[in-house]
Nucleic acid binder design. Structure first.
Lengths: 203, 203
DNA sequence: GCGTATACGATACATTCGTATCACAACATC
DNA sequence: GATGTTGTGATACGAATGTATCGTATACGC
């Protein structure tokens, strides 16, 4: 077999091309031909590595998923063991907000997929509920530990705070993408929220 | 002229058909023909009332905008003059969350448009920044008055709180649409946030 | 060295899309 | 009642898209 290039590697290459097209011109501009052109290969090649367009789209979605959890895990692992809980949460928010170009592209495509999944039942909606749920429980754990250490006011409900954090950053993220917020105003909103969240309260 | 039906009325009829199609099968399923079929008219008619597809899409977007501000204004006008500030904010959130079917459809289509506007420069992105900004300042005004009345703790920053409220409900809304949240969990999150927002704080 | 599975090019096909064209009916104005 | 504007149907056209088909070159097992 003329396995001149690795099969999985070539598929990854095509997926990257898809994501580039989607980030630049939208998910609706993703066609077999546009992906082929972006990757610099023939239409037949895209067909060869992905029998159908649906399969290609799904592969790209799966790669987005794994890329997201990988990046988040790397961010957390890079922090010292005894980092201040607020700093950990801040690291999460920095990752979850589409600030730089790459992050912006990622979130744009992810949101495009989410909107598509709202009406297309064949596209699995599972990633869009499982992923956030994992993040939510993870965040809740962090907050719970912070509370045990006395670094988060007792009045706060860790699970509810995690939900709030996630919804807030998600909302800020899309507001940033459509141009309602700038990177600075979004960051300010996050800082304000964390101030309100972590400052001690006495009734 | 055989003005058997009002021009504007017919256009409105077609726009409604578009929104129904978009809510059911997604904005990508909106074609001249699908809109015609949904409205029960011929393709030629859609062409006649909207020279181009872009014009049809824009008209639908404008109707969404106006429908949104109208509904919000009606909600506020329905409240007694001296309603508790928290109740006013709650009325806003009830309107902004896609709880019932109609509201769900509205938010789904709106989000679809927003995602489209992220990559398509010809589609005006202005509605997606102007609309939220108006709501934000309006909310900030309400909160500021509440603070003057002593019904909102002094530690809160009205403008920042308005931003937070908007981003939170927006994030909860899309989470609801993709199935991450249920109506109940979203409502709980809102209630929790309002509790944290309005309860007195003494340092 | 020969068959065979893998990898890829070129091209064709049916469908769908936005848009254009041709025809005609209804009504208003003079 | 001729005429022109407005409203509506039927159909056509070119472009784009997903997918299928035919052909061929490369490399490996034997």
């Amino acid at each position: 077999m003329p396995r001149r290039v690795d099969h999985a590697e070539r598929r990854g290459h095509l997926v990257v091309a898809l994501l580039r097209v989607a980030a630049r011109h939208g998910l609706h501009a993703v066609t077999m031909r546009s992906v082929a052109a972006e990757a610099g290969v023939s239409l037949r090649l895209v067909q060869y590595y992905f029998d159908t367009k649906a399969e290609l789209l799904l592969a790209a979605l799966r790669q987005l998923e794994q890329q997201s959890s990988q990046r988040w895990a790397a961010r957390v692992a890079a922090l010292p063991q005894d980092t201040d809980p607020r700093a950990v949460v801040e690291a999460f928010l920095a990752e979850a907000l589409p600030t730089d170009g790459a992050s912006r592209d990622f979130h744009l495509v992810w949101t495009s997929y989410a909107v598509l999944a709202m009406t297309d039942p064949d596209l699995a909606a599972q990633p869009f509920v499982d992923g956030p749920r994992r993040l939510e429980t993870h965040l809740a754990d962090i907050l719970r530990r912070a509370q045990d250490q006395g670094r988060l006011p007792a009045g706060r409900e860790p699970a509810a705070e995690a939900t709030r954090l996630l919804a807030l950053t998600h909302g800020l993220g899309t507001s940033l993408l459509v141009g309602h917020h700038s990177v600075d105003t979004a960051r300010d909103a996050v800082t304000y929220h964390l101030d309100q969240l972590f400052t001690e309260v006495e009734r």
